[in-house]
Amino acid sequence: MENKLNFRLALNDDLLDIIKMLSDDTLGSKREQFDEKISEKYKMAFENIIKDPNQELTVVEMNGQKVGTFQLTFIQYLTHQGGLRAQVEAVRTHSDFRGQGIGGQMFEYIKTHAIEKGCNMVQLTTDKQRPEALRFYESLGYVASHEGMKLKLV
């Protein structure tokens, strides 16, 4: 059995599985609402993402099973001489497949894809409550070069 990963853009039929992966950890379970009946908020967000040419919601499959997901947003800047950046969000590996190197392969794909799109940088944020994620990103060469700040509105 081959364990090659397949990367593809998400389809409507993937939405429930994506929400399940997003909610399947300590922090995600507090902010996501996984239910077999998908809420209108998730449906609307999904439609907005797939219509936006600067957004890519990706599903990662192995042997026909969904094993991961992530979202890329391509942001055009004036800084860095008009550079293009790839913002990585909502990275998850299905809990049944963690520890198998899938996350590293996903980030290799992200890096290659960003270069193909003409990006000069890949950036991400990670919650300070996820020290294992921070160590993982650092092991891939990501550097905590800025202090991120957020203002929660709702």
Rank of each mutant, 00 (worst) to 15 (best):
M62S: 15
H113W: 00
V67W: 00
M21W: 07
G148V: 10
Y142D: 04
F70E: 02
Q76V: 06
K128N: 13
V154P: 14
P53L: 07
K117A: 05
G101N: 04
V60R: 00
T69K: 00
G101C: 08
Q105A: 06
L5V: 07
A133F: 03
Q100A: 10
H146R: 15
I110A: 08
N120I: 12
K117W: 02
G103N: 04
Q81K: 11
L27Y: 14
S29L: 15
F136K: 00
Q71K: 08
R8W: 05
V60A: 03
F7D: 06
Q76G: 06
Q105P: 01
R31V: 15
F46A: 03
G103Q: 02
I75C: 05
N3A: 08
E132N: 11
M1N: 11
C119M: 02
D127E: 12
T112K: 13
D35W: 10
D25K: 07
T93G: 05
I50Y: 05
F107E: 01
I18S: 00
Q65N: 15
Y42E: 03
G104E: 04
L27S: 12
S23V: 01
F107G: 01
I75Q: 07
I102E: 01
R135T: 12
E36S: 13
K150G: 13
T58L: 02
K30T: 09
L140C: 02
T58M: 05
L5I: 09
N54D: 11
G99P: 04
I18D: 01
F136R: 00
M149E: 08
G118Y: 01
T112M: 12
I49D: 01
V67G: 00
E32I: 04
E56L: 07
H146W: 13
G104T: 09
M106F: 02
D14I: 11
N12E: 12
G104A: 04
K152R: 15
E56C: 02
S23M: 09
H94C: 05
V60F: 00
F97A: 11
M121A: 14
L153D: 06
I18C: 04
A45D: 11
T93K: 01
K20G: 07
E2D: 09
G99L: 04
G148Y: 15
M121Y: 13
F136Y: 01
T93W: 00
T69G: 00
L151P: 13
D17L: 10
Q123V: 07
K41Q: 08
L153C: 08
Y109H: 08
L151E: 14
E47R: 06
S29V: 14
L9F: 10
L134G: 14
M62P: 06
I115W: 08
Y142F: 14
T125A: 13
F7I: 02
